[in-house]
Design a protein around this nucleic acid. Structure first.
Lengths: 218, 218
DNA sequence: TATCCGCTGTGAATTTGATAACAACGTTAT
DNA sequence: ATAACGTTGTTATCAAATTCACAGCGGATA
């Protein structure tokens, strides 16, 4: 992906920008109007220099006296990371994890909307959970295409994940958040993020023993 | 954390080693006995050179002819990343997400065991879910200390997360996997990994639009 | 036997990412 | 006035991570 200078944007920059945006939204709720790089740095586990650099990337300029105007900065980040229109998301696998995500999403984002869910289980199909209609897995291609959904969250068991992924790709999906503990075999233009909960705990268990003092965000 | 040469071990190396281990376990299940670096590279989205370097780190040496012996390699990784004894884990917040994790953990790890869960809701307290007893949040300090648990998974709502984290730290926890969308205020020696599901989807939505062809693992 | 092959282990080179450091500049204090 | 302050934007520096590239070697081939 290219920014205005034609360079690709690293994943880490985007992660931090999204994190800043959330912090800024909280600050705004507290009626703050401006913030300095070192304050944001504290709240995001970045260095002040890194914060300033990240804002260079998106072309937002603060004032050496007042710092960064919170409203304007949020606006700049929005313009950089958000799509023009609302981006539609689907969730496949309405088990505990899926429902947790549906629930958590409710009203938290105005630029992303989960507009359809899928499940293999006939008992779940046809029901409406957290305001989202649940369809049978077989209809993924039809509905994802019709709705123009381009991001999917996979929360099905390991054994079904590849099949679901294939259907999603068929349907023209562009990015997948995969919670199944398996590497999906996909064409290279699909952006995938694998988040395995067991690997996550294993990593923490390792560093917990070794007393490393670092904080990582994802 | 130090390896045998006295250098600190980067987080990414550990993440990859844990991923290799899972891949290797699958290969073993398929009755494979050896594997080359380029094969592992394909299966883990790393480069062959990176795979070889990672094994350098743990001091395991393969054969140029046969590649890496799967059983021995798994054993080497185990020795490097696992604790001597079973490491105990607790989960705080037995909602949908918490139950998904309890469920997913069942029988998947022989070196990590969730031995207690906590919840504020009196209806959940006292019950046994997936074989794990659920205690009231107030008893975190008592039980975590008594059991010698040193890793915690936080799956409570944002508003309760800091309070829970404080209790865990009081109880002597060393590492936290935090699913609440908030930065926890903790002493620096606690290792924390924040995994925010909304940020994850936002990131994917961004790159999905831009057709970046990369795969990231965590 | 001699040659070729494909892989490993690793030093060197390269690329990527983070930090340091400082000029520039409003603001405040004196 | 003017000096001192604190922060930004940015360049230069440093560090970390990744890849390159090749010597070395055991086995296969003829």
């Amino acid at each position: 992906m290219k920014n205005k200078n034609g360079n690709t944007v690293p994943e880490k920059n985007i992660e931090r920008l999204l994190l800043y945006r959330r912090i800024l939204a909280n600050l705004r709720r507290e009626k703050k109007t401006a913030v300095f790089s070192h304050q944001l740095a504290l709240m995001s586990d970045a260095s002040p220099a890194q914060v300033r650099r990240d804002f260079m990337l998106i072309g937002y300029f603060g004032s050496p006296v007042r710092g960064y105007d919170i409203d304007q900065l949020i606006q700049s980040i929005n313009e950089f990371v958000d799509a023009q229109e609302v981006q539609k998301v689907t969730l496949v696998g309405v088990g505990h994890l899926g429902r947790a995500i549906l629930n958590y999403f409710q009203g938290r984002s105005d630029k992303l909307a989960i507009t359809a869910a899928f499940d293999r289980n006939p008992e779940k199909v046809g029901r409406v959970l957290h305001g989202i209609h649940c369809y049978p897995t077989e209809r993924i291609q039809e509905i994802v295409k019709a709705e123009g959904i381009d991001v999917a969250i996979i929360t099905v068991p390991e054994s079904e994940a590849q099949d679901v992924a294939d259907r999603l790709v068929q349907a023209g999906i562009r990015g997948i958040l995969n919670y199944a503990p398996i590497k999906l075999n996909l064409p290279p233009e699909i952006f995938v993020d694998n988040r395995d909960m067991l690997l996550a705990v294993e990593k923490i268990a390792f560093f917990a023993r070794r007393r490393i003092r670092k904080e990582s965000v994802s």
